[in-house]
Simulated assay, not measured.
Amino acid sequence: MKKSTQKILIQNLFLASSTPLTLADRRLYNYLLHNAFHHFLKQDSFKILLTELIGVYGAGLPPLERLKESFRRLIRTLIEYEVDGKWNITSLLEKAELDEKLEQVTYSYPVECKMLFKDPIILEKSLIQAHFTQKYSNLLYEILATAHYAKKSTLSLEITDLRSRLHIHEGKLTNFSDLDRFALVPAIKEINSYASFAVKYFTKRKGMKVTDVIFEMTSKRDISNTENVIPPKRPRLFIDNPDMERAYAYLLNAETDERRKFFDLARKTAEKKNKRITEEEFDRPDLWFKWVERQLLTKTKD
Rank of each mutant, 00 (worst) to 15 (best):
Leu123Cys: 07
Ser108Gly: 13
Thr106Asn: 11
Leu157Met: 15
Arg165Trp: 05
Arg72Thr: 12
Leu116Ala: 06
Phe117Arg: 13
Arg72Asn: 11
Ala195Asp: 08
His148Leu: 00
Ala183Glu: 03
His167Ile: 07
His148Ser: 09
Glu190Gln: 15
Ala187Leu: 10
Asn88Pro: 01
Cys113Ile: 01
Leu155Phe: 11
Asp119Lys: 05
Ala96Thr: 07
Ile191Gln: 01
Gln129Gly: 05
Leu162Val: 05
Leu184Val: 04
Leu127Gly: 04
Ser196Lys: 01
Ala96Cys: 03
Tyr149Val: 01
Tyr109Gln: 08
Gly171Tyr: 10
Asp119Ala: 06
Leu74Asn: 07
Ser126Arg: 01
Gly171Thr: 07
Arg72His: 11
Glu97Leu: 14
Trp87Arg: 11
Glu112Tyr: 05
Ile159Cys: 05
Trp87Met: 09
Leu162Tyr: 05
Leu155Arg: 10
Pro110Glu: 11
Tyr194Cys: 04
Val105Arg: 02
Lys86Asn: 07
Lys125Glu: 13
Ile89Leu: 12
Lys172Ala: 09
His169Ile: 06
Thr174Met: 10
Ser164Thr: 07
Leu102Phe: 06
Leu162Ala: 02
Leu116Lys: 08
Lys86Ser: 09
Thr90Phe: 00
Tyr149Ala: 00
Lys135Gly: 00
Arg72Val: 10
Leu98Cys: 03
Phe71Trp: 12
Leu92Trp: 03
Arg181Pro: 01
Leu92Ser: 00
Ile79Trp: 05
Ile168Glu: 09
Val105Pro: 01
Lys86Gly: 00
Lys151Arg: 12
Ile79Phe: 05
Thr77Glu: 12
Glu80Asp: 08
Leu92Gly: 00
Thr90Leu: 03
Asp84Gly: 06
Thr174Ala: 12
His131Cys: 12
Ile188Asn: 02
Leu140Trp: 09
Leu74Trp: 07
Thr146Met: 04
Phe182His: 15
Glu190Trp: 12
Ser108Gln: 08
Ala130Pro: 01
Val185Gly: 00
Arg165Leu: 12
Ser193Tyr: 01
Glu100Ser: 09
Ala145Ser: 15
Lys114Met: 10
Tyr81Glu: 08
Glu94Asn: 15
Thr106Glu: 15
Gln129Cys: 03
Ser137Lys: 06
Pro120Thr: 04
Lys118His: 05
Glu142Ala: 10
Phe71Cys: 13
Leu123Gln: 10
Glu80Lys: 13
Arg181Asp: 09
Phe182Ser: 07
Gln134His: 11
Ser137Trp: 09
Leu93Pro: 02
Leu98Phe: 14
Leu157Glu: 11
Ser137Met: 13
